[in-house]
Design a protein around this nucleic acid. Structure first.
Lengths: 111, 111
DNA sequence: TCGTATACTTTGGTATTCTATGTATATAGA
DNA sequence: TCTATATACATAGAATACCAAAGTATACGA
């Protein structure tokens, strides 16, 4: 299992990335992440929903209740323009840190 | 500047990675990270030293005071066998999360 | 009717983070 | 001589983030 701090650091990026592809709702996002990561990243609902609320408060995503005929309503989230910008910026940060790590891993151990 | 949570999530990996290359001490590690990241990642000393203490408590690194002729003593850190194993494991986690993000970024936005 | 899957919410204790502050020394430059 | 800057390490405690746990609600299959 992926450690918590790494999960936490990638949450925003993952949610915004998924919503960039199309609107979705909490429960489905959790399943999507589990699927994409081959089961190695698992978000509990108690972990994900507060993050969604927070992203909405920041104006990066927008929610809308959608009624279902045969089930309870779902709260669909959509990425906003600001959210898209934020995604680009955060992605750059991630890629940068990744390249620093790659550089370190290239270093030969001196012995 | 790289956000804090991302910095935090990569700290362990970065420190262990640098020490794998050869022994070093706090002050130099801070400078090394700044250099490797082109100035985008900056650790304050107050941020780094507690992490070093913590890694030592976990047995991933080992410290030794080294006297200097013309300056104050330095506390050199070396990576332990456990530290090397941990580095490999953590690296796998990072690479895995990175691949999940890459997969998400590949997705075409449906519109 | 019981278990499971779906679906969202919130509280509050715990853990983590990191700012601010302190200690100490050497050297360059004004 | 005084000051600033670089070197070098340490820690208290305030602030923040995290997330497990518990709660609410509905549908459906066994």
């Amino acid at each position: 299992m992926i450690p918590k701090n790494l999960t936490a650091a990638s949450t925003k990026l993952i949610i915004l990335g998924i919503l960039r592809q199309g609107n979705s709702y909490g429960y489905l996002i959790i399943k999507k992440i589990k699927e994409l990561s081959g089961g190695k990243m698992k978000y509990s609902d108690g972990m994900l929903y507060p993050v969604l609320h927070n992203l909405e408060k920041e104006g990066l995503i927008q929610s809308e209740w959608v009624m279902q005929d045969d089930a309870r309503p779902r709260k669909y989230y959509a990425i906003t323009e600001n959210g898209k910008k934020e995604l680009v910026a955060e992605r750059e940060h991630w890629v940068h840190v990744n390249s620093v790590l790659e550089a370190i891993w290239q270093l030969k151990p001196t012995k």
